[in-house]
């Protein structure tokens, strides 16, 4: 499946990218599994995704939890807890 990943705020600054197209062998994947896959890229990724920072996820513009399933064509985003207002 092909998906698009976005990241924001502290994550974007640390990873130095704001979006990426990703092709995966899986037909579907939980958000937690995607985090695990991305965390294997480098220590920087691991620290941000699986470290002490609370990372929130969204699929197609909806806030979701780690068990949410990602399918082909989805837009997935990672970001820190929100601080607007």
């Amino acid at each position: 499946m092909k998906i698009k990943i976005f990241d924001f705020a502290r994550l974007k600054e640390t990873w130095k990218f704001s979006s990426e197209d990703l092709e995966l062998p899986d037909a579907e994947l939980s958000l937690l599994k995607l985090k695990g896959l991305l965390a294997k890229r480098s220590e920087v990724w691991q620290k941000m995704l699986l470290g002490s920072l609370k990372v929130r996820g969204a699929i197609n513009h909806e806030l979701v939890d780690d068990q949410a399933l990602i399918v082909d064509g989805d837009e997935v985003a990672f970001f820190p807890p929100v601080t607007g207002g």
Partner: peptide, 21 residues
Amino acid sequence: KTQAPFWKKELTASGERWLDD
């Protein structure tokens, strides 16, 4: 404050910092 995806970054004398929730 807790659901809309906005993030604040402050500039202080010691540099920039992202705010925590």
